[in-house]
């Protein structure tokens, strides 16, 4: 049985369907990259997978004993967080909350777990630093470490490289690939950045305007029409953008 499967799933906001008839599944150990342009409904799908938004049709089935408290989630940053007075350790530790059950306080087990997560994201030396003083890339690592504390099974990542420069973006994706390989955690990642995001993925789900354009393995995707049309559109846009800039100077 798959870890997670969408069968004919649609999402709607106030009666307007933003995504229709999605069919795909994720098995344990896979790395699914969901790509699509801005407004293609990627974040909506993410909310659906997290059970924060109910599908308007179809069903999302979870298997292999996956429960909500075994999902690690990396959300997009909110403005509130950017200025939040908390130490790195406090933020990472808050990811262990789900393993507390009914107990009110963290014990040695959770602290060890947070330490491991900080070590694997190479932020252990920042543990006493204030979250708001960190760079964008460091903040993302902290949030990823928190997500790791919440799961041993499934990581959901929403635009993990949003707002990062190309070098930091590269190392962020490398890090996610490493976690997937070494810790055997299933990864589902949303991105609008095809080129750098696809690198470590095993499977691709490509969303167009409100529907599914492609689902399959990465190799199949490279041969698909969706891939080539997406690349074509993007390269035209990049060229157009460069010309616009030159004109401005």
């Amino acid at each position: 049985m798959s870890l997670l499967e969408c069968r004919g799933v649609s999402f709607a906001y106030e009666g307007v369907t933003v995504l229709r008839d999605l069919n795909f599944k994720v098995d344990s150990g896979q790395y699914l990259c969901i790509i699509g342009e801005n407004g293609a409904g990627k974040s909506t799908l993410m909310k659906g997978l997290l059970r924060l938004k109910k599908p308007s049709a179809g069903e999302i089935v979870t298997g292999d004993g996956l429960r909500a408290d075994q999902i690690g989630y990396l959300p997009q940053q909110t403005p509130v967080q950017k200025d939040f007075p908390a130490s790195v350790e406090e933020v990472v530790l808050s990811g262990c909350l789900t393993s507390l059950g009914r107990r009110p306080f963290f014990g040695g087990e959770q602290k060890k777990r947070a330490e491991q997560a900080m070590t694997s994201l190479e932020i252990l030396d920042l543990r006493r630093s204030c979250y708001r003083d960190l760079s964008g890339g460091q903040q993302q690592r902290v949030l990823l470490a928190r997500a790791l504390c919440a799961t041993r099974q499934l990581l959901l990542l929403d635009e993990p490289a949003a707002g990062l420069d190309p070098v930091v973006t590269r190392s962020m994706y490398d890090l996610i690939g490493k976690i997937h390989r070494e810790q055997g955690i299933t990864v589902i990642m949303v991105s609008h950045d095809l080129q750098s995001a696809v690198g470590s993925a095993t499977h691709i789900l490509h969303l167009g305007q409100d529907r599914q354009l492609f689902f399959g393995t990465k190799d199949e995707y490279r041969r698909s029409a969706a891939y080539h049309s997406f690349l074509g559109e993007n390269s035209i846009r990049i060229r157009g953008h460069a010309r616009g800039r030159k004109g401005g100077v």
């Binding site: 909110t78 990811g95 909350l97 306080f105 997500a147």
Partner: peptide, 23 residues
């Protein structure tokens, strides 16, 4: 407040994450 300190922190810092992970 003391009993729920850790949960209050989690909900204050990031409500969506807390909700998504079962708090």
């Amino acid at each position: 407040f003391i009993l729920f300190y850790n949960r209050i922190f989690a909900v204050t810092f990031d409500e969506t994450f807390a909700q998504a992970t079962g708090t």
